[in-house]
Simulated assay, not measured.
Amino acid sequence: MVSKAYRFGIEEEYFLSDAESRGIARKISPHFIEAAQAAFPNELQREMLQSQIEVMTPICENMAQARLSLSRLRAGLAAIALDHDMLLLACGTHPSAVWSRQRATEAKRYDGIMRDLQMLGSRNQLCGLHVHVEVPDEDLRIGIMVRMLPYLPLLLALSTSSPFWQGRRTGLMGYRLCAYAELPRTGLPELFTDAADYHAYVETMMASGAIRDSSFIWWSIRPSEKHPTLELRVADSCTRLDDTLAIAALYRCLVRHLARKPALNGKLTAASRAIAAENIWRAQRYGLHGGFVCADRRAMRPVAEVLDEVLAMLAEDAAALGCGADLASCRSIVAGGTSADMQLAIFEEARAGSGGQDAGMRAVVDWLAAQTRAGGNGQAGTTLRGAA
């Protein structure tokens, strides 16, 4: 019998791109927002910059529910966007957008954040995948957050979709976290000993006026401010829905496994955290094509080998949660490449033609839009308006 425990929800952030120029949509028409909110009143919210939106699934008990929700959201929003001469893109960075030309969304929370962050707020032109998994016991939730650190680089490597920044190849497969690291209270959480230790930090930050509440803590993994969940935030927004669901299944199984095995990663040290940070960098730089530093073996291990070991460890959890098929799709990502791999291949192929750099960027945006709209059915859909 499939367990209904470890309920979860998925949030995806998307870019809105101009359908004609393929550049970022700087100022979003209020008519688009009205149409999108009418279609998805409980699942859509604005982001800090006008060129981005975020969707969220309802609370899900199985992967089929999440797939149905995100398929509906992606297809529906892509259609509404196209009606307003825009393209919906699921990726960590927009290939050609220039941060200095962005406009902030008018909202009290975002106004305060922009005053605090100044230029860094405008540079936060980044889209991520967030997965919440329910862990009702707070001490267990904080403990799992810390013990999850060694697995975060794998989750990032599988999601990389940000090889471009400001119209240039970065040389990295996942540039998003590099830009995000400019913000305060990002990166890996500290090695909190328990919930009391975590609360001592949050309460001190709030009492001093540094933050309003814990939602202003933007670590790669964090306890939710509003829900009894542990929120994964390290992943890039995944272009292909199958990749989103594979990563969500992997994270959900890891949460269950760590809950069942309280001794696993129970004695992490400052060295352990530093190695996890190094492996985060290696995931950003190389994606699936590098390796991870292994403390136990004092060696560099290929990503595929690490994944195989983790999937074998999670077999019982996948069976209990009924997500074996989505979990197995992690191997398909390794075999076929991430969104970043595809973007780079498409860019080079188009650039090699007569169009040069501009043609390469347009081709990447077209692929991103088609794959985002297609969802998980593998079909690119109809020709884009204004497509070359």
Rank of each mutant, 00 (worst) to 15 (best):
S237Y: 00
E134A: 09
A319K: 07
L344A: 12
G356M: 03
C330N: 14
S237E: 01
I53H: 08
D197Q: 11
V133Q: 14
H227Y: 14
L73D: 06
Q284T: 15
A78P: 12
S17M: 02
G121W: 02
R109K: 07
L232T: 13
H31D: 12
S21I: 09
P223Y: 03
G322Y: 12
A97D: 00
A274D: 15
D18P: 11
A196R: 13
A39Q: 13
A370S: 13
H289A: 13
V131I: 08
S51E: 04
V131H: 05
R252C: 04
D308F: 07
H84P: 14
T57S: 09
L321S: 12
R26S: 02
P302F: 14
V255A: 00
N279C: 02
A320Q: 14
A380S: 04
N62R: 06
D213K: 09
C253Q: 01
W367H: 13
V133S: 07
I24V: 05
Q37C: 03
G356P: 01
L73P: 06
T239A: 09
H227A: 06
G360R: 08
G322E: 10
A90V: 00
L44C: 08
E34K: 14
L156N: 05
S159D: 05
E47I: 04
G121L: 02
G23F: 03
D213N: 11
G336S: 01
T269L: 00
V310P: 01
L68Y: 06
W165C: 10
L230M: 09
R46I: 13
P58K: 07
D317G: 04
K27R: 08
T244P: 00
A90T: 04
V133A: 15
L117I: 13
M205Q: 09
G9L: 05
R362C: 14
A248W: 01
A295N: 06
M86W: 03
L77D: 10
A352L: 00
A36D: 15
M63H: 06
D213W: 05
D341S: 10
I247G: 01
A274I: 08
A107F: 02
G266N: 04
A335F: 01
C178N: 15
D296F: 12
V303C: 10
V306S: 09
I280D: 08
M206V: 12
R233I: 01
L250Y: 11
Y286K: 14
G112Y: 15
A66N: 01
A328L: 09
Q284H: 00
V303L: 09
A25V: 04
E190M: 04
A270H: 00
M206S: 11
I211V: 15
L44A: 04
T186P: 01
D358H: 01
M300N: 15
I333Q: 14
P302Q: 13
G375S: 00
S329E: 12
C238N: 09
T186G: 07
P262Y: 10
R240F: 15
E20W: 14
T229I: 06
R169I: 11
H257D: 14
V310I: 09
G23A: 03
R260I: 06
M56G: 05
D341Y: 11
D111E: 07
D236Y: 07
